[in-house]
């Protein structure tokens, strides 16, 4: 049989007093669809299902969700990778308020991103051409700038669950290091001063859920370690 059992987290604030799980049968015709394709099929059965999606190729970061217990992007997760016993359970990203169904309020996540001043700071007057950067210095940004802000990492991080208002979280810290590591950025000292409190960086306990779920294969834990090294070097 090619009928997949899909269990979906449902919540519509206008009609439901509490969230609940709803079961759907989806005919996959035996194909190894992506989870996002399955959602499209469910939406044809129930027009009211809400989820975010855009690029459908894993670069826009819209469709982060919890699939059979693990965060990831629905559009690049094939059923063969997550489905066990013909059953797929889909829930919103954990730890953030749910707006409707699989749509979460990303406000806190974005706030933490904005807090690390995610933009290049350089007050030296720019040359008439580009600022030069050696390939070696540019290589230091690899594994950092590729973040798509899908929030899979931060919402799988227990430290972020407990302190989403104070702990920057893996995604924000990865970007904090992306600018600390940029040879063109001049605000290193100010950036570090903004991070040395007990929460912003130091709530990371090295659980490494972030590394396990990142759909782009990035390593926020390593970046956090580098930030700690820089803080230490700066303060001792």
């Amino acid at each position: 049989m090619s009928t997949l059992q899909v269990s979906l987290y449902r919540y519509n604030p206008e009609t439901d007093s509490a969230p609940y799980m709803e079961e759907f049968q989806v005919d996959t015709q035996g194909r190894d669809l992506m989870v996002l394709d399955v959602l499209h099929l469910v939406k044809e059965q129930d027009n009211g299902l809400a989820y975010r999606r855009s690029c459908r190729e894993g670069v826009c970061g819209s469709d982060g969700m919890n699939m059979n217990g693990k965060n990831g992007l629905a559009c690049i997760t094939p059923l063969s990778e997550v489905v066990k016993n013909n059953k797929l359970t889909l829930r919103p990203l954990p730890g953030l308020p749910v707006i409707r169904d699989l749509v979460v309020d990303m406000g806190l996540f974005y706030k933490q991103y904005e807090r690390i001043q995610p933009y290049l700071q350089n007050d030296t007057p720019a040359p008439a051409i580009e600022r030069l950067q050696s390939p070696e210095d540019r290589d230091k940004l690899d594994g950092l700038y590729e973040c798509i802000l899908c929030a899979c990492c931060s919402t799988s991080c227990p430290s972020f669950w407990w302190n989403p208002d104070k702990f920057v979280g893996p995604a924000g810290l990865l970007q904090a290091y992306r600018f600390l590591a940029d040879s063109r950025d001049e605000a290193t000292r100010e950036r570090l001063e903004g991070l040395e409190d007990p929460f912003s960086v130091f709530r990371c306990r090295g659980i490494m859920n972030c590394v396990a779920v990142c759909p782009k294969g990035l390593n926020p834990t390593r970046a956090i370690g580098k930030i700690r090294e820089m803080l230490l070097a700066n303060a001792t």
Binding site: E196, D197, P198, F199, S200, V201, F202, R228, L231, L232, A235
Partner: peptide, 11 residues
């Protein structure tokens, strides 16, 4: 927080 700094706590 004792040292008022995550870094000193960590150390």
């Amino acid at each position: 927080n004792f040292g008022r700094s995550g870094l000193s706590d960590w150390l």
